[in-house]
């Protein structure tokens, strides 16, 4: 009996320690960032371009580049991902081929992002000739998050109760009407949560953007998707890899902005889930 009690508390202690370590590291990281980054964090920082002098450098180009990327990526990836999920869940025959397809999509979600970068380089930059434009960047990021959006949307569609599908069929609805007007609205919270979480992953990506040729130093805001671009993680990477410590400090400021955007995104996901969740079961 005594031994079991001891084992119990050892296990509990171990789990607590693991949790504590994770949180402690996060707190230390944030503390470090705030210490270094807050002094530069003002409107000027958001509203100036990068510069050779760290004191005058800002993230204007990177911030706008990131916003462009978010917009274009969701424009490509959302409709494509949701439509794919609808096809797989609602129309595709439940054959071995479909099953194989689904397993592959789920596996694609785990492929390292740099591989997508190489794919984007081959297809969008070279083959389609988009060069190092926002098109290439956002299409590459779309490929990257597409599997996650598909899998999340499939789950959301699957959890729409059969009973309300039947109700709509019994009212003389066609299949497309049931899908468009009943299933998708009911699945929307799940779809949006998945989409937002995957988009926030895309925002933080650096590697694939470097491969498709995003630039580290830019002194203008992209006006059309044909323009060159930079993004927050790239700007941070660029500054962090310079020798002067002044750049390291503004890199920390950049990270804080990036974190704020990510936090805003995730908060949105939580709010949407809370607000729209209409089927508790």
């Amino acid at each position: 009996m005594q031994v079991r009690m001891v084992t119990n508390s050892i296990f509990k202690g171990f789990c607590f320690l693991s949790t504590f370590t994770a949180v402690a590291i996060l707190v230390m990281l944030l503390y470090h960032l705030f210490l270094k980054g807050t002094s530069h964090l003002d409107l000027d920082f958001l509203n100036s371009f990068s510069s050779r002098r760290p004191g005058r450098a800002g993230i204007k180009a990177a911030l706008w580049g990131t916003l462009w990327l978010i917009g274009l990526t969701s424009l490509f990836a959302l409709p494509l991902g949701v439509a794919t999920a609808v096809y797989l869940e609602e129309y595709a025959e439940k054959s071995r081929l479909t099953r194989l397809l689904e397993i592959n999509i789920a596996n694609l979600a785990g492929v390292p992002s740099i591989i997508y970068g190489l794919l984007g380089l081959a297809i969008f930059v070279r083959f389609l000739g988009f060069d190092r434009s926002l098109w290439s960047g956002s299409l590459t990021l779309s490929l990257l998050i597409l599997p996650v959006i598909i899998v999340a949307s499939q789950g959301a569609i699957r959890s729409v109760p059969l009973s309300i599908r039947e109700a709509s069929f019994a009212l003389g609805a066609q299949k497309w009407q049931v899908v468009l007007f009943v299933v998708l609205p009911a699945a929307l919270p799940g779809i949006l949560t998945g989409a937002i979480l995957s988009l926030s992953r895309a925002i933080g990506e650096t590697a694939p953007l470097i491969i498709v040729g995003a630039v580290g130093y830019m002194r203008f805001i992209p006006q059309t998707p044909n323009d060159d671009f930079t993004a927050l993680p790239l700007q941070i990477y660029d500054w962090a890899s310079r020798p002067q410590s002044g750049f390291h400090d503004i890199a920390a400021s950049g990270i804080l902005v990036l974190l704020a955007i990510l936090l805003l995104f995730n908060l949105n996901a939580v709010i949407i889930r809370q607000k729209l969740q209409r089927y508790p079961s």
Binding site: S163, E166, G172, F181, R278
Partner: peptide, 28 residues
């Protein structure tokens, strides 16, 4: 199915307003 309606074992209203539930069928 337009002419032969159905009421199910478990009540299954749409997660919409009362009014929208009524007009859903006629609208589509």
């Amino acid at each position: 199915r337009k002419k032969i309606g159905m009421v199910f074992q478990k009540p299954n209203p749409f997660p919409k307003s009362i009014a929208k539930n009524i007009v859903w069928g006629p609208k589509i």
